[in-house]
Simulated scan of single mutants.
Amino acid sequence: MLYSYIVKKEIRKTFDHVNNHRWDDAVKAVAPDVHHRVSGAHALAGERHDKEALRRWFERLGRVQPTLHITINNIWVKGWPWHTTVFAQWEATATLLNGDASYVNRGLHVFTLRWGRVYALEEFQDSQEAARGLAVQSAAGLKEAVAEPIVSSQKPSQRARAF
């Protein structure tokens, strides 16, 4: 189906933007009241309910894991343009500041799209590996790696709640 092909291409492009620290491009198709959630208890966890908080989260991701590279293994698209669910299975690798190249995290992103805009994004990953990598970064002197999560100051709207 042509629609699925286009969506997969755009999702891959977004991950490419993240890999190359192009944050403006990464959030271009995000709705103003997006709902973004990452589980765990670490500096990249928490919930954001607006595009600006998500952009700040991406900026932090780039600072605390500067060599992070995400490889997409599979993408599944379900639905129509007015309500699409996308599953993106991935593997992330990074060399940590202490020279350790063993950081590997695997996960799944679940996107909710409406007419090409991302209204919700939930990330399922190995939160213990994420926390371990961030602890190594902190021990190497990067204090932001153990900072409090970035969260939104505004409350979520009904439209953005897709979980």
Rank of each mutant, 00 (worst) to 15 (best):
R159K: 15
L44W: 11
S138K: 14
R117G: 00
H49S: 04
L134H: 07
Y3T: 07
Q125R: 12
K13G: 00
W23R: 00
Q65V: 13
Q158H: 08
W57R: 07
W76R: 13
W90A: 00
P32T: 12
T112D: 07
E148V: 07
P149K: 10
K13P: 01
S153G: 15
V118C: 04
A140H: 10
P149N: 07
W23K: 02
S138Y: 10
W23M: 01
L121C: 11
Q154D: 14
H49G: 00
H69S: 03
H21D: 02
F163W: 13
L108C: 13
K143G: 11
Q158I: 14
Y5A: 14
E59G: 05
K13N: 07
A131G: 04
A88Q: 02
A31I: 00
H35N: 11
N105A: 09
A101S: 15
D25G: 07
F124I: 12
W57N: 05
A53V: 06
L96Q: 11
N105M: 08
Q158E: 14
A160R: 12
K155C: 04
A130Y: 12
E47V: 07
T67N: 13
A130K: 11
K143I: 06
V30W: 04
A140Q: 08
H109C: 14
F163L: 14
I72Y: 09
R161D: 14
H69I: 00
R106N: 12
A162R: 15
H109S: 15
S138M: 09
Q137A: 13
H49W: 11
A41M: 13
K78M: 14
D16T: 02
G141A: 04
P81I: 08
T84P: 07
V38S: 06
P156K: 15
E52W: 01
I72S: 08
T84S: 07
M1F: 10
W80C: 14
L68Y: 06
R37H: 12
G62H: 00
I72A: 09
A101K: 15
R56E: 12
S102A: 09
F58A: 01
T14W: 06
V30D: 00
W23L: 05
F15N: 04
W80V: 15
W90Y: 11
I75W: 05
Q65K: 10
V146P: 02
T95I: 05
I150N: 02
W76T: 14
I11C: 12
R117H: 09
W76Y: 14
E52C: 05
K28C: 09
V34L: 12
L68G: 03
H83I: 05
W82L: 03
L97I: 04
S4I: 01
N98T: 13
K51C: 05
S39A: 13
E10Y: 01
H49E: 00
H69N: 10
L113E: 01
R22N: 05
V146N: 11
E10H: 09
R117L: 14
A29M: 10
T71C: 03
V136Q: 11
Q128D: 15
L113V: 03
R12S: 09
T95E: 12
L108A: 03
L97C: 06
W115H: 08
K155M: 12
T71L: 00
F163Q: 13
Q125H: 15
E52R: 09
K51R: 12
Q128V: 15
F58W: 10
R106T: 12
R132Y: 09
A135M: 10
R161G: 10
T93L: 06
G133N: 05
H36G: 01
Q158F: 03
G79V: 08
T95Y: 03
P81T: 01
